[in-house]
C-alpha cells in the first residue's frame, strides 16, 4: 500500500472533471423543476447532446461549435417533451421516461459512423501566472473551459433565482401555477423556456463526456449519469450550491475509490461503488422524514399539469 502515490491535488482536479457532466445536467434540471416541471428525460437529453456535440465538433473541427450544437440538440429534444406536456398535457413522468428511451435510440442512430473518430482537442484555460501557482494552480487554473463554465452557470442560476424578478416569476410558476396565471404570467411559455434551458444544460453535460472526459463516441456512453443528476437535484433540495456540492461529492467518491484502488489500498470495492448512491438515498430518507423542510423546498406545483381553463 502506497498512499503517497495519490497526489491530493491531482485527485481534486480529476474529481472536478468527473463531476462536471452531472453538475451541468443537474443544474439544468433544477431550473426545470423550479418551474414546476418534472422532466425525467435527462439521460436522453444528455446522450443526444453527447452525439450532437461530437458530430458537429468533428465535422467543423471546432469544439466550441460542438458544445453549442450539444446545447441546441439537448434543448430541441427537451422541447419535444415541452410541447407534449405543456400543450397536449401528457403525463410528465411517462413522457420523461419516453424521452430517455427516445434519446438513447436517436443518439445511436445519429452516432452511426462516428465511432472510432477522435474529436478536436478542447482548449484548456491555462490562466497566465495563476496556472503556475504551486498548489492552487493545478487544482483551480488548469482545467478545460467547461469546468469553469459549469460553475459559472451554477452561480448564475443561483443569482437569478435569488435576486432577480425573472427568478421570482419562475419560482412563482413552480409554486403555484394557478396564482401565477391569475397574475398574468404566461405559465406555459415560462415553463417551455425552463425546459429548453434544462435540455441545453443536459446536452452540454453529455458533450462534456464525449468531447472532453472520455473523449470518444460510444453508444449509451452516459451510462446512467442522467439519473444521478436527477437524484442530485433532490439531494440538493433544489438549491443551486447544493447541486454543486452534490455533484462534486458524487464525482469525488467515484474518483477517490478508483485512485485508492490504484494505489493498492485494500478496499471493499462494492461498498465504495455503492457509497454515492447510498448517501443519496440516505439524504432522501432524512429529507422526507422531515416533512416540513421537504415541503418547504420542493416546488409545490412540481409535476402537476397546468391547464389555463381550470
Amino acid at each position: 500500500m502506497d498512499l503517497s502515490a495519490i497526489n491530493p491535488l491531482v485527485l481534486i482536479a480529476s474529481l472536478m472533471v468527473a463531476a462536471t457532466p452531472i453538475l451541468l445536467a443537474a443544474i439544468g434540471e433544477l431550473v426545470v423543476e423550479k418551474s414546476g416541471v418534472l422532466n425525467l428525460g435527462v439521460e436522453g437529453m444528455m446522450i443526444t447532446g453527447a452525439i450532437c456535440g461530437f458530430a458537429i465538433a468533428v465535422e467543423s473541427s471546432s469544439p466550441w461549435l460542438g458544445l453549442l450544437a450539444a446545447a441546441g440538440g439537448g434543448a430541441l429534444l427537451a422541447l419535444v417533451f415541452g410541447v407534449l406536456t405543456q400543450f397536449f398535457l401528457s403525463n410528465q413522468v411517462a413522457t420523461g421516461l419516453a424521452l430517455t428511451l427516445f434519446g438513447l435510440g436517436l443518439s445511436a442512430l445519429l452516432g452511426q459512423g462516428y465511432a472510432g473518430i477522435k474529436p478536436p482537442p478542447s482548449p484548456r484555460l491555462d490562466v497566465p501566472f495563476l496556472a503556475d501557482l504551486p498548489v492552487l494552480g493545478r487544482v483551480l487554473f488548469q482545467h478545460d473551459y467547461m469546468v469553469y463554465i459549469s460553475i459559472l452557470i451554477v452561480a448564475c442560476v443561483w443569482a437569478v433565482l435569488k435576486y432577480t424578478r425573472a427568478g421570482l416569476i419562475l419560482r412563482a410558476v413552480g409554486e403555484s401555477h394557478d396564482a401565477a396565471h391569475a397574475l398574468g404570467y404566461k405559465v406555459v411559455r415560462i415553463r417551455l423556456m425552463a425546459i429548453a434551458f434544462g435540455g441545453a444544460c443536459a446536452g452540454l453535460g453529455g458533450a462534456y463526456l464525449s468531447l472532453i472526459r472520455v473523449p470518444q463516441w460510444t453508444e449509451g456512453m452516459t451510462a446512467g449519469a442522467g439519473w444521478i443528476a436527477l437524484a442530485i437535484v433532490v439531494f440538493a433540495s433544489w438549491r443551486p450550491w447544493g447541486v454543486l456540492l452534490g455533484a462534486y461529492l458524487f464525482g469525488g467518491v467515484t474518483v477517490l475509490q478508483l485512485n485508492l484502488q490504484a494505489a493498492g489500498l485494500e478496499l471493499p470495492v462494492e461498498y465504495l461503488s455503492m457509497a454515492p448512491y447510498l448517501i443519496t438515498i440516505l439524504v432522501l430518507v432524512i429529507m422526507s422524514a422531515d416533512r416540513g423542510r421537504a415541503a418547504l423546498n420542493a416546488p409545490a406545483a412540481l409535476g402537476k399539469i397546468f391547464h389555463a381553463s381550470s
Binding site: I6, N7, S14, A223, T254, V255
Partner: peptide, 15 residues
C-alpha cells in the same frame, strides 16, 4: 461505463 472506465484509466496513469 465509458466515463468510469476512463476515470479508472486516468487514476492508474496518474499513479
Amino acid at each position: 461505463d465509458p466515463a468510469k472506465e476512463a476515470d479508472a484509466a486516468n487514476a492508474l496513469i496518474d499513479q
